[in-house]
Design a protein around this nucleic acid. Sequence first.
DNA 1: TAAATTATTTAGATTTGTCTAAAAATAATT
DNA 2: AATTATTTTTAGACAAATCTAAATAATTTA
Lengths: 219, 219
Amino acid sequence: MNLTVTEENYIKSIFHLQQAEGNVSTNELAASLHTKPASVTDMLKKLTNKNLLNYIPYQGVRLTKDGKKQALMIVRKHRLWEFFLVDKLQFGWDEVHEVAEELEHVSSKKLVEKLDSFLGHPKFDPHGDPIPDIHGNMVAVRQFNLIDIKPGTLVEVCSVGSQSAELLELLRHKNIGISTEMLIMKKFEFDHSVEIKIKNSQHINISQQLAQALFVKLV
Amino acid sequence: MNLTVTEENYIKSIFHLQQAEGNVSTNELAASLHTKPASVTDMLKKLTNKNLLNYIPYQGVRLTKDGKKQALMIVRKHRLWEFFLVDKLQFGWDEVHEVAEELEHVSSKKLVEKLDSFLGHPKFDPHGDPIPDIHGNMVAVRQFNLIDIKPGTLVEVCSVGSQSAELLELLRHKNIGISTEMLIMKKFEFDHSVEIKIKNSQHINISQQLAQALFVKLV
DNA sequence: TAAATTATTTAGATTTGTCTAAAAATAATT
DNA sequence: AATTATTTTTAGACAAATCTAAATAATTTA
């Protein structure tokens, strides 16, 4: 099934909205897509005919199994490209969203899988959101980038940004691994480094680069 | 000036066609874009209004200075993405065109420049076509990938695929540089390596990887 | 529960890029 | 030069995605 860019954007918005609430209303969708409710109604009918939505007039809408799969593949592409932009092209994590909105609509499946390999099969995008794998599976817990955590917070390492040898070497050296608990002590404006304390251990300093590669959950 | 994907494709086709001949005819364009002459006429008027074309009814069309600049930026993007796909994602050079046709329409200027840096400012795409720089300048001579040259041909090295340290080391070791003349002796099916002879020197063997990174002109 | 408000859908119009069929201009041929 | 053939343009229609305005359904409030 081949979707237009517009159809893909509808599917993606419905996916994100139905995560938060149950059924998605016409008005919500219109707001999220910066369009008018009347336009939404038209598109809902169209996507229903393509078996991507369950839509009952006046009752809101949910994705079908098929629709959800399509959505997950778009989200996968979006987040892989975001990772690429930050990790390889040195974009700031706060400036990649717009660009990824365009890249996510490039259709080649081979491209997505080769990109995934090239990036080292990352599990999280630069905002800490999980990247669905080729089957649409992804980690459920909301994760945060270490660099965004406020001092005084106790967190646990869930995942690292990639599997590169250089990153793993540094983590081993600092004795940091999956499920390591750490208390965020202080953040330094000058170099965006972070001082942390690991249980039964001394204070250590984490560089900006490393902090951006560490994903944690609140504990 | 913001162009739609369709408009960009028209501009790009006109650019390529007017390289070969002088004025570009409605029929040629229709054939090249897989559309009908009547549709072309409509679009020519539209692009003329945007000052991208000089169009006189029944006389064919040429790009204005502005139109040419737009075309060069699209070609730049197309060829940079092709280079990326082959060099970083391990696509075959014969399967990248379709994908690049989509990627070339991603609009972020910052993306293009960061990609160019990431790739090491390559001068030629995987087919040997020159990549315009940010000002639209590019090498004029048609160049070929060493791997595509027939045995018995005398060629001269014009450029190398990238500026990576590893590549430069190997070239130094083999005594190959810009303007080195070499005679193509034999090509081996098994590993796609190429045997060459450099003037006043012995026969040496060039691996497939290296051959793909060498761009030559006929001499 | 009846009226008022809000949400959603329908009806009809618009824009973009395309098409077919017919007319007009240009080029080729006899 | 006159006719024929080709190329190009015009005219009118269509599909996709959108809009505004009006109608209808659902919900809230008095």
